[in-house]
């Protein structure tokens, strides 16, 4: 193949990655828009082991080359993730776009990555030398930068099953009803027993990066839902004061206001 490699196994793929300078290609939907001059692609779209959705005792495991459409048709993928990816662009993009690509291209607007953050997602990275599993928090450094090594490939997204089973909240606001990049999105999962919060996650698109404020989340544990929703503004403020909103297609003020409102909505939804 001229200007490309098309391995059929992950092993073969990581060996090529360790030898030559190639750009991993899964769905192409972002890559082809970027129009990289003289690109040499490592095509991952036909590696079976990257196209599986499986589960083990601890995780729902989504292969890096699984498309969003494939995931929407799967019974294993949790509803929060499905809701997030069902609003990505439009069918033709969801049919091609992949979980590995969405995570790997280090966009700050990746809808599946947001859901993964809310669910304590992890990523399995594989190289010719071995593999490692790290949390999304460690993988995503900032917009445009990830923690992947030169010789590594994303093999799987791992979603902890106990998080996948939790009630959740999701909201996306784009510029229109379809074919829209998230201007603000909000994802969270929570556990409430007898009106008391046992676990909570809350994460947003709008900061120019993906982050969990785990220390703030921890301050809500043990609080009653009634108390939190009755004082939604104050509790939201605990997060908001840590957050820095970016301006771009919309202003930082817009993002901040909407995220504040969505915190209120999130807390209210727990009732």
């Amino acid at each position: 193949m001229v200007n490309g490699y098309k391995p059929t196994t992950l092993q073969e793929a990581v060996e090529i990655k360790s030898r030559v300078s190639v750009t991993p290609y899964a769905g192409g939907t972002d890559l082809m828009v970027r129009n990289i001059p003289d690109a040499v692609y490592l095509f991952l779209n036909d590696i079976d082991e990257l196209r599986q959705i499986t589960q083990d005792d601890a995780y729902i495991r989504i292969g890096a080359a699984v498309t969003f459409t494939q995931a929407l048709d799967s019974d294993l993928v949790p509803p929060l993730m499905k809701e997030a990816i069902s609003r990505i662009a439009a069918p033709a993009i969801r049919n091609a776009g992949t979980f590995g690509g969405n995570l790997g291209n280090a966009s700050d607007k990746a809808d599946s990555v947001l859901a993964g953050f809310a669910l304590d997602g992890r990523v399995r990275l594989v190289s010719a030398k071995g593999e490692r599993v790290i949390p999304f928090d460690d993988f995503c450094v900032r917009r445009g930068v990830t923690n992947i090594a030169d010789d590594e490939l994303i093999a799987e997204i791992l979603l902890p099953k106990e998080k996948c089973a939790l009630p959740y909240y999701y909201k996306k606001i784009g510029g229109r009803s379809a074919l829209a990049i998230s201007r603000v999105a909000f994802a969270g999962a929570y556990e409430v027993h007898n009106g008391v919060i046992q676990a909570i996650s809350a994460t947003v698109i709008g900061e120019g990066k993906f982050t969990r404020y785990r220390e703030v989340e921890a301050t809500l544990i043990g609080k009653s839902v009634d108390e939190v929703s009755a004082n939604a503004d104050a509790y939201a403020e605990r997060f908001i004061e840590k957050m820095t909103f970016t301006r771009g297609r919309v202003s930082a003020e817009y993002r901040k206001t909407v995220v504040t409102n969505l915190f209120k909505d999130y807390f209210a939804s727990m009732k």
């Binding site: 003020e253 817009y254 206001t257």
Partner: peptide
């Protein structure tokens, strides 16, 4: 008058 304008107006 966009989604953003609605929020900025309400603010």
């Amino acid at each position: 008058f966009s989604t953003e304008d609605v929020i900025l107006e309400l603010n």
